[in-house]
């Protein structure tokens, strides 16, 4: 008896593992159908690898100056050389190496801000949505108030007074951006709380931490994931803007925004100084946005259905006509 039970359990487990693998495969298949999403995923993977292995793949030290080779143009110009594929800046530093190293800052700031702000916002949203009453009123008032703040100006002042650095940039951006997660989590919790399965769990006597972590959070993951990715894109842009304004990452560290700001003064002689790091920002954010819109598409069954109808209607109609004809020929 116990043996068969154990067998059953094992079977069920292995089945669920297969389901998991199947789901992943399904996702892969889905991804191959969506070219834009596929490109996005490939680009992001490449960027992450580039950031991790930056010291190994960059041809030069990003801070190494060479005053004899200042403002060297990219390789496709007559004066360019393979030594500096994208040329050098006003201090003779290799643009390509700086672009490669710049990805580290962007991605690091993005990851830390999204996890800090996301974590805080989700906890606050869960508290507000689940506990309700005064807690809810207080947290939501707080969110409303902070949303109405002139956020960027405050951020600029705080950065100016405390002094800009990687840590302060991360902190300021996190403080500025947790409210979206809070609002979304709260409204989702309110919706899910009323669903029968959570009510059932309450009736059975589950404690609320269990209900939140076992029943509510798993249902939030897909929308939180999409939001997190979109916020990630926004944060990368915000870090670049802060660094461009001189209130973000400080030299000698490298950041794409910082490079654009330094190249700005030489823009008319050497366009590549602003264009290359700018492109790096653009491509990164575009890749993230592509993945986010793909995710949104596959997590919305209705939208998926419509997409399908648009692409497949023609070929299916042809197939039907063919089938009808063959049936008519062989009665």
């Amino acid at each position: 008896m116990t043996k068969t039970k154990a067998n059953d359990l094992e079977q069920a487990l292995s089945r669920s593992r297969y389901e998991w693998v199947d789901k992943l495969k399904e996702l892969g298949r889905e991804l191959r159908r969506d070219t834009a999403g596929f490109i996005g995923v490939v680009l992001i993977t490449a960027l992450v690898l580039m950031a991790v292995f930056a010291p190994l793949i960059s041809p030069h030290d990003p801070t190494e100056q060479d005053l004899t080779a200042r403002l060297v143009p990219p390789v496709w110009y007559e004066k360019g050389s393979w030594g500096h594929v994208f040329g050098t800046d006003h201090l003779g530093r290799d643009i390509l190496s700086r672009a490669i190293h710049g990805s580290r800052v962007s991605l690091w700031v993005g990851v830390s801000v999204v996890s800090l702000a996301g974590g805080f916002g989700v906890v606050m949203g869960l508290l507000a949505g689940y506990l309700g009453g005064r807690t809810d009123a207080f947290i939501m008032r707080w969110v409303d108030t902070q949303v109405a703040f002139p956020g960027l100006l405050l951020a600029l002042i705080i950065l100016a007074v405390i002094g800009p650095s990687l840590t302060t940039v991360v902190l300021v951006l996190s403080l500025n951006g947790w409210m979206v997660y809070g609002r979304m989590t709260r409204s989702a919790v309110l919706a899910i709380r009323q669903s029968p399965y959570v009510e059932a769990a309450e009736v059975v006597g589950c404690r609320w931490p269990r209900i939140i972590f076992r029943h509510i959070l798993p249902n939030l993951t897909s929308s939180l994931l999409t939001l997190g990715i979109l916020e990630f894109a926004r944060i990368v842009l915000a870090e670049a803007a802060l660094s461009f304004l001189g209130l973000g990452i400080q030299p000698p560290a490298t950041s794409w925004g910082l490079d654009v700001s330094m190249g700005k003064n030489y823009m008319f002689m050497a366009w590549w100084l602003v264009t290359i790091p700018g492109c790096a920002i653009g491509i990164t954010v575009l890749a993230i946005n592509l993945v986010a819109s793909w995710l949104r598409l596959i997590s919305d069954p209705q939208e998926r259905e419509k997409q399908f109808a648009r692409h497949m209607a023609g070929s299916m109609r042809k197939a039907m006509v063919l089938k009808a004809e063959t049936e008519r020929r062989q009665p």
């Binding site: 998926r304 259905e305 399908f308 109808a309 497949m312 209607a313 299916m316 109609r317 039907m320």
Partner: peptide, 10 residues
């Protein structure tokens, strides 16, 4: 009248 859906032609 036919409807072209993911599941097939209705």
């Amino acid at each position: 009248v036919n409807f072209y859906t993911r599941g097939g032609v209705v």
